[in-house]
């Protein structure tokens, strides 16, 4: 390992350890009450003690978020392709996509929960998460499909390409980098949307991480709240890392964004 790499990895790591130590120290030194701010060691302990229930909840949240992401991805790409075929449809549907995007999800959530029914809270959560995650994929893919190189476009026309050939051989590959950077945002939003929806669905809704946080909050088990939060953050980072990895893998050979500079 070169000195440069050591510094690149070591610096943020050292800072993080220092941060944890300072936190631990000040909680003891200033006698902060554990239900206001628990020490990192207490959070770690709680994470360990409640591992079984927390991980089970994390699995519930994660699988809902993954399903929402997959649906948003498929729906977003399908809609973008539809928009490309027909500008009229695009103009007719685009405003709804924008409205869904700018309306705060917590404001729609109770409605959706009522419509779908509390007994099917999981479905409501899924729908809400899809609504949140849809827009970045849709917007990016829509732009990507239109950013085809003009000369390549002419070449395809010159050789009499069919609609399908254009879509698969030209428009989709051109849109891929855009689609993937939209997907990276959507993946994170799917998780955020799932947790928000779980919060709104509340009691008896789902057994996801949000519910663990509410439960622990009601009992003033602040360390457990933090433990759930740590898991949630870890999930978020994991999701982002996975999608980034897929992006890199798909683009590494030909796209500037994924190729090393030297």
């Amino acid at each position: 390992m070169t000195a440069e790499r050591l510094i690149a990895i070591g610096t943020p790591l050292t800072l993080f350890v220092f941060f944890l130590l300072a936190w631990e120290w000040s909680v003891t030194a200033f006698a902060v009450k554990p239900f206001v701010l628990p020490a990192p060691s207490a959070i770690a302990l709680s994470l360990y003690e409640n591992a079984a229930s927390l991980l089970a909840s994390a699995a519930v949240t994660m699988s809902l978020a993954a399903a929402a992401f997959a649906i948003a991805l498929a729906l977003g790409v399908a809609l973008a392709v539809l928009f490309l075929q027909s500008p009229v449809i695009e103009r007719a549907l685009w405003p709804y996509a924008v409205i869904l995007q700018v309306t705060p999800i917590v404001a729609i959530a109770p409605l959706i929960v009522i419509w779908v029914g509390l007994e099917r809270a999981q479905l409501a959560v899924l729908i809400l998460a899809v609504i949140v995650a849809l827009f970045p994929v849709l917007a990016n893919t829509t732009i990507g499909l239109k950013s085809v190189d003009r000369n390549l476009d002419e070449l395809f026309r010159l050789h009499g390409a069919t609609r399908w050939q254009r879509l698969w051989l030209l428009e989709m590959p051109s849109a891929l980098p855009y689609l993937l950077s939209g997907a990276k945002i959507s993946a994170g939003l799917a998780l955020v949307g799932t947790v928000i929806a779980e919060f709104v669905a509340g009691t008896g809704g789902t057994a996801g991480l949000a519910w663990r946080i509410i439960e622990a909050g009601n009992r003033l088990q602040v360390a457990k709240m933090f433990a759930a939060l740590v898991l949630l953050a870890a999930l978020g980072v994991l999701v982002f890392a996975i999608v980034s990895l897929i992006e890199w893998w798909l683009l590494r050979r030909w796209h500037e964004s994924a190729s090393p500079r030297n």
Binding site: L152, L169, P173
Partner: peptide
């Protein structure tokens, strides 16, 4: 096409036909 090999690029007109 930046995503396609030289050979695939050359074969494109034939493929479209």
């Amino acid at each position: 096409m930046p995503w396609a090999s030289a050979e695939e690029n050359v074969a494109l007109p034939l493929r479209l036909e």
